[in-house]
């Protein structure tokens, strides 16, 4: 009887997660073209085989890996710096704490367009600033070059999500009992040594959590890339989610699009399980 309280929530979750995943599995095993909805022959694992045999799939997986590794590493480093900065009792930290929320709360679509304008090859702020500072001798076409476009997407993502990492790490910092530092100071641990031997180890659980959330989030990136580059130039920033979307709504190949979705889901589940397993292992060892 009491279990009924969870029933509506479980029902909603089942309707939006379990049922669709079942539907997607079915679709992925059939040939389903949007234009011919009534002819859907069973094709076994053909959709998966075609995907895994295509260069486009592996290219998308590569782009996603580069994007995820680059953005998560930078976000963690900058987020740690930001968290340490706002954790100190200095003037202006209240303003910064409020300001860091601004990028986070922006719709990703808005931040993509905002960065797209900054990256504009003729009128953009990026070229203007870098030319003025003497970093560049000539303006760059940021979104027209495969390497630069990926770097540009990573910077835009770092801008948007570093605040989130900083907030998680800040919560971790605030949970550390000041007594730890007082005791450490008596043992001669201050400044850099205190950071290395006290702050960092105590912060590791928060960092692991931030790392896991951000990795899974970056791996499924869609809005940012789709709005900023549409996966271009020449498919050089096409991530797995963007590829799945294009299969569905550009090629109208729902069978392969669904298979792509299932593969992304499986990869996400593997990453998540891997992190949880590593976390448990680390806790057990520590």
């Amino acid at each position: 009887m009491r279990a009924l309280y969870s029933a509506p929530a479980l029902g909603l979750v089942a309707a939006v997660f379990l049922l669709p995943v079942g539907q997607a599995l079915w679709t992925s095993l059939h040939r389903v073209w949007r234009q011919v909805p009534h002819e859907t022959p069973f094709v076994g694992l053909e959709n998966y085989r075609l995907l895994l045999a295509s260069d486009r799939f592996w290219a998308a997986l590569g782009h996603t890996t580069v994007f995820t590794a680059g953005s998560v590493a930078l976000e963690l480093a900058l987020g740690l710096g930001l968290a340490l900065l706002v954790h100190r009792k200095i003037r202006g930290r209240g303003v910064v704490r409020a300001a860091v929320l601004v990028p986070w709360v922006l719709p990703t679509v808005v931040s993509s367009l905002l960065w797209g304008w900054i990256y504009h090859d003729r009128y953009g702020l990026a070229n203007h600033l870098l030319l003025t500072l003497g970093v560049l001798a000539e303006p760059r076409v940021w979104l027209g070059d495969p390497v630069l476009a990926m770097a540009a997407a990573i910077v835009a993502d770092v801008w948007k999500t570093t605040p989130y990492v900083a907030l998680i790490l800040l919560t971790g910092l605030q949970a550390v009992d000041p007594v730890v530092y007082e005791a450490g100071a008596l043992d001669g641990a201050a400044g850099a040594r205190a950071f290395r031997y006290l702050t960092l180890p105590l912060l590791l659980p928060s960092m692991a959590v931030a790392l896991m959330f951000r990795t899974l989030d970056a791996f499924r990136v869609f809005d940012l890339i789709y709005v900023l580059t549409r996966g271009g130039p020449g498919g050089s920033t096409e991530t797995v989610s963007v590829l799945a979307y294009q299969l569905l709504f550009q090629d109208l190949d729902f069978g392969r699009g669904a298979a792509m979705g299932i593969l992304i889901l499986a990869a996400g589940a593997m990453i998540g399980t891997g992190y949880l397993w590593a976390l448990r292992f680390a806790r057990g060892a520590g």
Binding site: G22, A24, A244, A258
Partner: peptide
Amino acid sequence: MFPPIALVSPLF
């Protein structure tokens, strides 16, 4: 942490 793209085709 569910990748929403996996839900798009079935929900559609």
